[in-house]
């Protein structure tokens, strides 16, 4: 457990907490970007360079921008006067705390079974690319079709006007 891990873990958890707790929705989106960056740095700390940079490109570069666009298009940046949490927030918090208790208990209980350390895997991006077009070519093609369908679907859903006059 190195010092770097503690710093990155604190950054990630603080970003996630801020993304969930802040009142202003735009601030939430920015805190979400911090949490995504912390997770990408954790990936890099785990010697998963490709996944780390894919995380930065996809989440910080695309998903966070999409969230900010959606907030601005829906005027979600106006903080509601009657609170940002649902009426049933206590039940939601209890469920989340119970889930964390079970997950944390499972991790602590199995601490002795987990491998103590492992040699750093030497996986190059070339190997990942060859695996993607070799063993994993079918999932890759399905993901390509899924992404195309999702993008077309999102555009069609979002551009349809209620008064029956599509742009």
């Amino acid at each position: 457990m190195s010092f770097v891990f503690y710093v990155l873990a604190t950054l990630t958890v603080a970003g996630a907490l801020a993304a969930v707790l802040l009142k202003n929705t735009v601030h939430c989106a920015l805190a979400l970007t911090v949490a995504f960056a912390g997770l990408a740095l954790l990936f890099l700390n785990l010697d998963a360079q490709f996944a780390g940079f894919a995380q930065i490109l996809v989440y910080i570069g695309a998903v966070a921008i999409l969230v900010v666009f959606a907030i601005l298009l829906t005027r979600g940046s106006d903080t509601p006067t009657d609170g940002v949490f649902s009426r049933t927030w206590l039940a939601g918090l209890a469920v989340a705390a119970a889930v964390f208790a079970v997950l944390g208990w499972a991790v602590i209980q199995t601490a002795n079974l987990l491998p103590k350390s492992a040699p750093a895997p030497t996986v190059t991006v070339q190997q990942i690319g060859q695996a993607l077009v070799g063993r994993y070519v079918l999932p890759l093609e399905i993901v390509a079709v899924l992404l195309t369908a999702a993008m077309i679907g999102a555009v069609i859903i979002a551009m349809h006007e209620k008064n029956g006059a599509p742009k």
């Binding site: 958890v13 993304a19 969930v20 939601g92 918090l93 944390g104």
Partner: peptide, 24 residues
């Protein structure tokens, strides 16, 4: 790492269950 992942998952679950804004 598993504990951090569990913590982030629980925070996300709490956010999804308690926030009123659909984007949140």
């Amino acid at each position: 790492y598993l504990l951090v992942a569990a913590l982030v998952f629980s925070i996300g679950l709490a956010g999804a269950l308690t926030r009123r804004n659909a984007i949140l």
